[in-house]
Write a protein that binds this DNA or RNA. Structure first.
Length: 432
RNA sequence: GCCGGGGUAGCUCAGCUAGGUAGAGCGCCGGGCUGUUAACCCGGUGGUCGGGGGUUCAAGUCCCCUCCCCGGCGCCA
């Protein structure tokens, strides 16, 4: 019996080697005296050929009965053949039908509603499997990057007591009779951690009950967040640029095959390999939009349409900085040299993807922060422990949050966020 | 929350404007085929038209209510 190999290892084997491959039936064609079975595993596909000439008679019978998505173990000999997809195939000696699948509901051509109802089966498609592999490579890149930068990975809570900002978009849960909420952001907890570890990051889910219905929104998404003591806004933007450029480079190095399956034009990612992303001030963004004929005025928030116009101006991700204070969250620090402006930044991805990062320098003065909380109409008591951080050795500090699925959308060139995560959570859809 | 589109066979859809006993393609099942690539050829199988009420001799089609899904906006990452 040959050695067990997966379909990726198989590509490098030479003619005549005896191997064992196991996987699921992806395509099946019976030509009478010869049966072609394309077998799928985690890494790809390989064509298995069964013939009366070299396959034992029981196995040949099995080959003729194998249905789509049946699980099989195949013993056979590697053959290089131009007619096989990928140029390599296996001449089957023995085929073990581990489980004969019932009629598989997904056959191609289904609509999105049907596919989402069958996500637990759709998950194994070649295209989605490529996304999961790319996602793995992206997560590895995050860890490598922060390790190199000297950041500590920390584990913030998912169950929280109070709102970070605004309460309408929180998912409420019952915490032994008391109200609790699923976290929207780890930011406040990361701010706590910098007084212990100085530079921290986390990769964790965030939950937002925004009633959004767009191809860029999930109710549960993976949030990459970092926070650093002594870091000013410009330092943080430098870090974000290095992070995004590093990630783009690593994905281009490790995921060529996946990007190819997804049909991504990787030329469009080349300019983003260098961490030199343009920075424009909010005021400049407004000017650009006016010049483009968009009906906006200073003080307006930038919506999806405005972002789309702006992203068409750049080939790389770019920053918008220094927003009017009232457009941004209460914890963002006011720029001393530009009163009325927040030391805040958004990073927008090109090709119409839009905002992928939001960050800022945090207000580190106790009185100023408290006044901001009061002027927004929030309860000061809800923020006691957060305010405490400004009472015991407060330091300048900055941080950011990155939407992992939006980053994947851009890098992988996907037109809908649902394909970036195995089980996308949308409004009115919690099954499966 | 608002605007728009949709729910008819297992799947994708046509039929609705001008009411008259429900259609196609794919799939599936059976047979054939020595190299297929979404294989091909022949034969077969398919539906309380999302749910409820109304108008009518007659409703998939017209009217009212309701449920569900999709796309977009606001908000955000």
């Amino acid at each position: 019996m040959g050695r067990l190999v997966n379909t990726r290892e198989l590509r490098d084997l030479s003619e005549g080697e005896e191997v064992v491959v196991r996987g699921w039936v992806y395509r099946w064609r019976d030509l009478g005296k010869r049966v072609f079975i394309v077998v799928r595993d985690a890494y790809g596909i390989v064509q298995v050929v069964a013939s009366k000439d070299y396959t034992d008679s029981m196995s040949f019978k099995v080959a003729r009965e194998a249905s789509i998505e049946s699980s099989v173990i195949v013993e056979g000999i590697v053959r290089r053949d131009k007619r096989a997809p990928g140029g390599v195939e296996i001449r089957a000696k023995k085929i073990n039908l581990v489980h004969k699948a019932e009629e598989f509901p997904i056959k191609g051509g289904e609509g999105i509603d049907f596919l989402l109802d069958n996500r637990h089966l759709w998950i194994r498609s070649r295209r989605l499997t490529a996304v999961w592999r790319l996602r793995q490579n992206l997560f590895n890149a995050f860890r490598e990057f922060f390790h190199k930068e000297g950041y500590f990975e920390v584990s913030p809570p998912m169950l929280t007591q109070a709102a970070v900002e605004g309460g309408a978009t929180l998912f409420k849960v019952d915490f032994f009779g008391r109200p609790a909420y699923l976290t929207q952001s780890a930011q406040f907890y990361l701010e706590v951690m910098i007084f212990s570890l100085e530079k921290v990051w986390t990769l964790a889910p965030s939950f937002r009950a925004e009633r959004s219905r767009t191809r860029r929104h999930l109710y549960e998404y993976w949030h990459l967040e970092a926070e650093a003591a002594w870091s000013r806004m410009d330092d943080m933007m430098d870090l974000v640029s290095r992070l995004v450029a590093y990630t783009v480079n690593r994905v281009l190095e490790t995921s060529q095959e996946e990007l190819s399956i997804l049909g991504r034009n990787t030329e469009l990612l080349e300019p983003a390999r260098k961490p030199a992303y343009p920075r424009i001030m909010y005021e400049e963004a407004i000017d650009i939009l006016k010049r483009k004929g968009v009906d906006v005025k200073y003080g307006d928030d930038l919506g999806a349409d405005e972002e789309r116009v702006l992203t068409s101006e750049f080939e790389t991700p770019f920053y918008i900085t220094l927003f009017p204070l009232e457009l941004k969250s209460f914890y963002m620090k006011e720029d001393e040299s530009n009163p009325g402006l927040a030391l805040a930044f958004d990073l927008l991805a090109p090709e119409g993807v839009g905002e992928i990062v939001g960050g800022s320098e945090r207000e580190d003065d106790y009185e100023k922060l408290k006044n901001r909380i009061i002027s927004r109409g929030y309860n000061v008591e809800d923020y006691n422990w957060y305010l405490d951080l400004r009472r015991y050795g407060s330091v300048p500090h900055s941080g950011f949050g990155l939407g992992v699925e939006r980053l994947i959308m851009w890098i992988a060139g996907l037109d809908h966020i649902r394909d970036t995560i195995p089980f996308p959570r949308f409004r009115d859809r919690i099954y499966p």
